[in-house]
Nucleic acid binder design. Sequence first.
DNA 1: ATGAAAGCGCTAACAT
DNA 2: ATGTTAGCGCTTTCAT
Lengths: 344, 344
Amino acid sequence: MTESTKASTMKDVAKRAGVSVKTVSRVMNLDPSVKSSTRDAVLAAARELGYRPNVPARTLVTGRSKIIGLVISDIGNYFFAQFVNGVESAAEARGYSVLLCDTGENPDTELRCVDMLLGHRVDGLILAASRLRDDEITHIADTVRVAIVNRFHPDPRVLTGSIQDEAVRLAPAHLVSLGHRAIGYIGGPIYSRAAWAREKGCRDVLSENGIEGPLVASGFPVNIEGGYWAMNWLLDVMPHITGVVCYNDMLAIGAIRAAEARGRHVPERISIVGFDDIHFAAHAHPPLTTVSVPIHRLGYNTAQLLLDALEANDDKDKLVDAERTRCTVECHLVIRGSAGPVPE
Amino acid sequence: MTESTKASTMKDVAKRAGVSVKTVSRVMNLDPSVKSSTRDAVLAAARELGYRPNVPARTLVTGRSKIIGLVISDIGNYFFAQFVNGVESAAEARGYSVLLCDTGENPDTELRCVDMLLGHRVDGLILAASRLRDDEITHIADTVRVAIVNRFHPDPRVLTGSIQDEAVRLAPAHLVSLGHRAIGYIGGPIYSRAAWAREKGCRDVLSENGIEGPLVASGFPVNIEGGYWAMNWLLDVMPHITGVVCYNDMLAIGAIRAAEARGRHVPERISIVGFDDIHFAAHAHPPLTTVSVPIHRLGYNTAQLLLDALEANDDKDKLVDAERTRCTVECHLVIRGSAGPVPE
DNA sequence: ATGAAAGCGCTAACAT
DNA sequence: ATGTTAGCGCTTTCAT
């Protein structure tokens, strides 16, 4: 079978190059103190033997795995696909690998994932859509550096990557400025803090403008179908609504379909706005008015924040800058075709 | 900082439970030969100390990391998001973790990714959209079990997960049956074997029906924008085409937009079919007629094929069934609204 | 500039 | 049913 020949080790390389194991180690770690002739000999021997450093072995002794764990809730959600990509890029650029886990929105699975990742001795952890309680996260932070996304946590050791706070106000404010006063809201995952923040943003904007509501549809699956059902529910309960804010674009796309199916043309007879500006948003029909989030950058920056902290931790000099515990990406409203002035 | 207390080891647990290290090891590995009272004592001690087995250490001695490496070319492509999800599920279910790499379509990056994964001593490798040459893959197979996707490789050690061969004929056959005879094709990634197979499928179907073509637009980015540009090119070169087969749904969605922008209504004045049936296909406008691929299952089955091979390799009894070197998922045409009878 | 020895946390092969 | 010894491949002292 494939492993006919065991992978060669530093010992093999050392023997072949006629040096000690430690010298090989030095070469592999780019120690400048090795004479260039020895280095070349070692490198040659390594190449001939197809030598590849054994990361787990190094991890065992150094305590650093060069792996970061990434926990997401559903890669079927386009948002996470882009986010993962961003994390990946940042990690790759700095010599780290990403161990990925998908919890399927289940908190128990999430805990199991974290456990598994800790077993692998990941150097850091990114919880991209944690459904865990604050104290559970604090507990994790006792063991490993952790970064969370779009969520506030009181523990200063917990790093945070998020959209700017005001972003949650953009969509409802747009609807209000268009004259809408009968507004519905289609909510996100029940235990998600991000979902809670967006719903609050909507509520705040309305109340500041003396508008009642919004009528909230929540508990629906956070995908296109869920948006379809939620919109139908909204229209059943409150047929005269003229504007709907959605937790994300997937829901908004489903909502548009439901509205159209009931003859409420978008945007003439009802306005719908999304959130995230996923790739397909521009190609929905009508093209979606939504809040653009630089998702890839959010993933990239969050990973970088984590990596910075890890390295600051190694170099005692490079102390963790107290301010560098949070990063924020800017969002903006993208006006396309799914929201218009209130009818009549 | 976080690692104030070093993680506890088997030795700690052993001391606390008043047993030997080996007994702790046995308990952790579910060895049935330990008395249940000792097992309980060990488990209690482990819990109290917050003990978590050190996977890298185990890897070092067993030579098995319980990690599989997954190399994809672009997670921004919705296809891969779903595929990764499938692989993840299968791995999780069998106690494996997934180390993910994105090559961004770059063969050099791909090689670097593989190298890194081998450094981590992954037990197996899935190359989901390899741009590598056959001999490069053979070389990798010398070191580790590898599975490839939608691509044929002569080496019997290389496992394969793919769509059924006939799937590539479905879309062009549909167009032909609708009466189309002036057909265009929008191609996928240049170095992709899957892309090559689909193009050939189209060519074959046409020639079997005595039809010339197709006119091929290739070299465009494989995303919505690329589809848009490709369609414009097709329409410039051959304005009288009535049907277009696309490498995938992303391209098809872009193609539809381009056609509509030029007043060629879909499907009345031009028919467009996609491939994959990604989630958004049904929600495009018009809803996309496409070839439905059970992507999640493809990922799941491919991972399972790999895992089976790995375990058969461990248990010498359970020899690798010679037939179990390939798995195939069935695809079918989904007729929606983007293809219709030829105009006039 | 290079090497020898110890040990990271775990399991395999033998004890007992 | 449980313990002992050795060693996986590497890095870290500490020598030379």
